[in-house]
Amino acid sequence: MTIDRQLVIFVAAHIRDYLSRRPLASDTAEGIHQWWICWLTTPEAISVTMAALELLETDGLLERRKSGTRILWRRSQPPFGRGHTFDGSFRRC
């Protein structure tokens, strides 16, 4: 089955919009599929949402994290947390 690229882009836009309003949100693919996307009619297959999540991950906008046995998706975080920059130097206390 081939997934419509325009549909994947539509879903990715909904995910980006959701995260722009709720930057700390995270959820499973199923939760994102059900709650984050404003489907125009009947929801598409979960494979469309997965393709959108993977596209956003490839673009560096999303990351997946394991939580127990579940995979949660969230906005990509800097390696040392929000607002922290790392210049490569180390200081001894």
Rank of each mutant, 00 (worst) to 15 (best):
W36H: 06
W36Y: 04
W36I: 01
W36D: 00
W36S: 02
W36N: 05
I37C: 03
I37S: 02
C38D: 15
C38K: 10
C38H: 13
C38L: 10
C38N: 12
C38T: 13
W39T: 05
W39M: 12
W39A: 10
W39C: 06
W39F: 08
L40Y: 08
L40H: 08
L40Q: 14
T41W: 11
T41G: 12
T41K: 14
T41L: 13
T41D: 15
T42Y: 14
T42C: 13
T42G: 14
P43I: 10
P43F: 08
P43N: 11
P43L: 07
E44Y: 15
E44S: 11
A45G: 14
A45E: 15
A45V: 12
A45F: 11
A45S: 13
A45P: 06
I46A: 02
I46Y: 04
I46T: 06
S47V: 13
S47Y: 02
S47N: 14
S47F: 07
V48R: 01
V48W: 00
T49E: 04
T49G: 11
T49M: 09
T49A: 10
T49I: 10
M50H: 06
M50R: 12
M50I: 09
M50W: 07
M50K: 09
M50C: 08
M50E: 05
M50N: 08
A51Q: 03
A51H: 04
A51F: 07
A51K: 01
A51C: 02
A52M: 00
A52G: 02
L53N: 05
L53W: 02
L53D: 02
L53I: 07
L53F: 05
L53T: 00
L53P: 01
E54G: 03
E54Q: 04
E54V: 05
L55Q: 12
L55M: 15
L55Y: 09
L56D: 10
L56R: 07
L56G: 06
L56V: 15
E57Q: 13
E57L: 10
E57D: 07
E57C: 11
E57Y: 09
T58E: 14
T58L: 11
T58F: 14
T58M: 14
T58A: 13
T58I: 14
T58R: 13
T58Q: 09
D59E: 15
D59Y: 15
D59C: 10
G60Y: 09
G60T: 12
G60N: 10
G60K: 13
L61I: 15
L61S: 12
L61V: 10
L61C: 13
L62W: 06
L62R: 06
L62G: 05
L62Q: 02
L62K: 06
E63T: 11
E63I: 08
R64D: 07
R64C: 04
R64V: 04
R64F: 09
R65V: 01
R65T: 04
K66F: 06
K66N: 08
K66T: 08
K66P: 03
S67N: 02
S67E: 04
S67C: 00
S67T: 05
S67L: 05
S67W: 00
S67Q: 03
G68K: 00
T69W: 03
T69H: 10
T69G: 14
T69Q: 08
R70Y: 00
R70S: 08
R70D: 02
R70N: 05
R70W: 05
I71C: 00
I71N: 04
I71T: 12
I71G: 00
